[in-house]
Design a protein around this nucleic acid. Structure first.
Lengths: 338, 338
DNA sequence: AGCTGCTGTCGAAACGTTTCGATGAGATCG
DNA sequence: CGATCTCATCGAAACGTTTCGACAGCAGCT
């Protein structure tokens, strides 16, 4: 395997010239550069990563700490992991994957051995020990998600309040005067991530602002309970013509079946919007309007912020990514009769 | 951040002594070692990864190339990724994640920059460019899955033939004389991975060996088609009393519903075994006997084989991991009446 | 002609380890 | 009691880069 000395010898220059030619950090004469390029090609030279890490101050590696537990929703996680890796590669960074078992120890290890230049934290929970660790480590880091105490941290997340508000706005703008939110199982609101809470609060707040009636129900995961919850909410609030669903993948289809089972058609009788799913709702029957959770959006920004910190500390912040709306025809004006 | 010189100074020894004390590669006097340990603790010393890589011959990093495409079955992939990371950590190796977009370029990059000591290849397909690349790179590598041309490669995979044979044996041993396999959609057998084919062939071969009637049907993914396929096979082969299902997650529940819909109860009327799923079948109604695809089994072995290659090339091979059987009560003797 | 400033290149130091060979101090032996 | 051996330790080289400071050569200026 050729090294920089070989290249220098073949090109008839010094190694520092080769280094500068390749990094472009100092001007190099036209002819010299060509000779060096030629030598690089001829020898199939690629700089040794370890030498580079040692001499430079950068390893060009980020640690990605992701739960990858079996109880987390796998497709979503995979999409986020993928988005982080892709975003990092755009900055010529590689990604070292740390799992749940090793969350704290692993981060400590890779950062104090200077194996990584920074840390991307995925799937942040309200009480996340990794948040405290990152704070104390003083290493460039970006969290995707917001922990309970975000002080001193750089966090990126979808603006769930705005997403819920956007859903309400769409329904109200279409003429709906009574809307409902079907949310996660109650356990999710009590512990775990805080975004369901933010979505719910955003929903209720904007409904109040717009002066429309709003109700909120939590929906468990089992099909019978889902059907019952749908019936319950539609019975309790017969005026509801607009529905927002904030739930996991399987739940949506069951809700749609339950709605169809009551003889309601979408959007003629009921307008429905899916809130921040990570999966495709356009293949549902009927396809649902959706405010998607787009992994790339947050991940690209998180990686950008981590890269910025390589130059020196930046202001801690919680950056909220604006939600987007995708129309698939599941929202219409309510039927005049109500 | 303390370095080895600091430790040496505090402990009053030379840096080589510190290095030997920490690596244990040469005997160190009792008192000296204690002083060094003390200094390490006091300074919170951790060896610099880059220095270590440069001086040693190892980076202690493996590349993991995983598709992470959105069209692959996410939970299974995540489980494999997780299993590889966990297995690697057991050897004190970290894992650098490379995705589909960068499969070949990325592998080339990290191996010729000597950033990684070896490569683990996940989700190998029949025509996998990564297989050829790994062959030409001559880097320690282990493939999880078997490419069309495995010559010169170290591969690990579940023994799908044996898994299918095991399923047949269980049914035949229980007294069944006519068995059927419900497999993947036809497209899967034509292109893509080769394990469905191996499972099918193992099934048919062992059934022939045991002298029982066997049929095989491919099942598409849509619920109506699944129901129809179940009906078709039970109508065409009324003597079938043992069923093996080799399909993706959602398919099993639909099959079970279809079976129940025909008034058949498991295992009284029909014995059923789930073949090599990566998900939990014990929570199905009824729980199904299963020959699981256990990510850890193949991944641990693959990592072991990669680690072995660090010392020098080993014999290329395809190592097949023995299948395991988990009894959940869905297999019983066929009803005497048949 | 002598100074200044710029461009292109070089030499050398530094990054932090591991590891080879050497050396000193004791213990062991004849 | 000197030769030999072992054990613990040390010094120095090596790994392959990046980067600082220096320095020729040359153009432009006074």
């Amino acid at each position: 395997m050729a090294n920089i000395h070989d290249v220098a010898r073949v090109a008839g220059v010094s190694i520092s010239t080769v280094s500068y030619a390749l990094s472009g950090k100092r001007p190099i004469g036209e002819k010299t550069r060509l000779r060096i390029d030629e030598a690089v090609r001829e020898l199939d030279y690629m700089p040794n990563a370890a030498g580079r890490m040692l001499a430079g101050t950068r390893t060009r590696i980020f640690a990605l700490t992701a739960p990858l537990r079996s109880d987390t929703y796998a497709p979503a996680h995979m999409a986020f992991v993928l988005a982080v890796v892709t975003a990092a590669r755009a900055f010529d960074y590689d990604v070292l994957l740390l799992t749940e078992d090793e969350a704290v120890d692993g981060l400590r290890r890779v950062s104090s051995s200077r194996l990584v230049d920074g840390i991307i934290v995925l799937d942040v929970s309200v009480e996340d020990e990794r948040a405290d660790l990152v704070r104390s480590l003083g290493v460039p880091a970006a969290l995707i998600g917001v922990p309970g105490d975000a002080a001193g941290l750089v966090c990126v997340d979808l603006d769930f309040e705005a997403a819920a508000a956007l859903a309400v706005d769409r329904l109200v703008d279409a003429g709906h005067a009574s809307v409902a939110l079907l949310g996660h199982p109650s356990a999710v609101y009590e512990r775990g991530s805080n975004f369901p809470v933010r979505f719910r609060d955003g929903f209720l707040a904007r409904a109040a602002e717009r002066g429309v009636a709003a109700s909120f129900s939590m929906v468990e995961k089992d099909a019978p309970e889902i059907r019952q919850a749908v019936s319950a909410i539609l019975d309790a609030h017969p005026a509801v013509t607009g529905l927002v669903v904030h739930a996991e993948e399987g739940v949506h289809t069951t809700i749609l079946e339950a709605v169809a089972g009551r003889g309601l058609s979408i959007p003629a009788d009921l307008s429905v919007i899916a809130g921040v799913p990570t999966f495709d709702t356009s293949s549902f029957t009927p396809p649902l309007d959706v405010i998607p959770l787009i992994p790339a959006d947050s991940c690209v920004r998180a990686v950008e912020l981590a890269v910025q910190q390589l130059e020196g500390p930046i202001e801690p912040r919680v950056e909220l990514v604006a939600p987007k709306y995708r129309d698939h025809g599941s929202v219409a004006a309510p039927r005049p009769g109500g």
